[in-house]
């Protein structure tokens, strides 16, 4: 009898989670959006193995993952480039690769960027929660981050993929440039703070995670010291906690927050933020609307 399609995790890496396009539309119930941080890389990986865009992939952090499929499977690794090995032999990154049953698939440490996405033909088939298989690290919805020995079921493959000509990959720039649309609470900060935010000196903090891209740099000062009643938050909101250091909210951000949001980074610039390693300089391009 053929074993059920599944993956056995050998080395989970620093932090590997199951991700798809998340669970938008439930914010009023306290449910974060979640989903792949580098959504274009997630979609590309799926396309390479013939999956629809909303199939679940694995999102690794910095040092990859190793696992064994129980049945033959087609995989593709995208996002942060990393060495791909099958039973020790080098295989292609950014292209569909066949992995025989029982072979060891090892995605190594990212050579640039932070998060590699690994798609499997059929997709990771854990039980969806509110229509999504994403791991939400803030609220704990979805499957737990992978651990050694974890078993992940795979879905039925969709079709044999046509091989795309090339998998586009933009190497992470040495500087992360983030446009920032002011509001809703930019008037809670001093004019000097707004100038400082637009200036040099910000870097990605080692404390950055799926909830937010934390920064290091000059602390912003408030013009208004009132306490802000909690209000709704959006993806890309740049919240300024009492330490004055801006945090760019990513997919697992809380749905409400009690610190002022100085501005919002448009969503299409967040995949680059998700690939910026700690220490990367950040330049906020402040735009008054």
């Amino acid at each position: 009898m053929t074993p059920a399609a599944a993956l056995d995790v050998v080395r989970p890496g620093a932090l590997t989670t199951v991700q798809d396009e998340g669970r938008p539309g439930h914010a009023h119930l306290g449910v974060p959006r979640s989903g792949a941080l580098d959504a274009p890389a997630h979609r590309l990986a799926n396309r390479l193995v013939g999956n629809p865009a909303d199939a679940a992939t694995l999102e690794t952090t910095l040092d990859g993952i190793a696992l064994r499929p129980r049945t033959p499977v087609t995989i593709a690794a995208t996002g942060a480039p990393a060495p791909v090995r099958i039973d020790g032999r080098p295989a292609a990154w950014g292209a569909p690769v066949h992995v025989p049953a029982g072979a060891l698939l090892d995605i190594g440490r990212a050579t640039a960027g932070l998060r590699t996405y690994v798609a499997f033909s059929g997709g990771i088939d854990v039980e969806p929660v509110l229509g999504s298989r994403s791991t939400d690290l803030l609220s704990g919805l979805g499957p737990a981050p992978l651990t050694p020995g974890a078993e992940l079921p795979l879905g039925i493959p969709y079709f044999t993929p046509p091989a795309p000509d090339a998998a586009p990959w933009q190497a992470p720039p040495r500087e992360l440039v983030l446009p920032l649309l002011l509001g809703p609470r930019h008037d809670w900060f001093t004019p000097e703070s707004l100038r400082m935010l637009a200036g040099p000196g910000y870097r990605v903090s080692p404390a950055a995670n799926r909830i937010g891209l934390r920064t290091q740099g000059p602390a912003l000062t408030r013009a208004k010291e009132d306490e802000l009643p909690s209000e709704g938050m959006v993806l890309g909101a740049v919240q300024v906690p009492p330490d004055g250091l801006p945090v760019v909210f990513l997919a697992d951000h809380p749905v409400t927050g009690g610190y002022p949001v100085i501005g919002v980074v448009p969503e299409d610039h967040l995949p680059a933020a998700a690939q910026a390693v700690p220490g990367t300089p950040i330049r906020f391009v402040v735009r008054d609307r």
Binding site: H28, G232, T256
Partner: peptide
């Protein structure tokens, strides 16, 4: 509107 998020003094309309 994708998300309607009420809070203490505000209503957020997102999407």
């Amino acid at each position: 509107v994708r998300d309607v998020v009420p809070a203490a003094r505000t209503v957020l309309l997102d999407g």
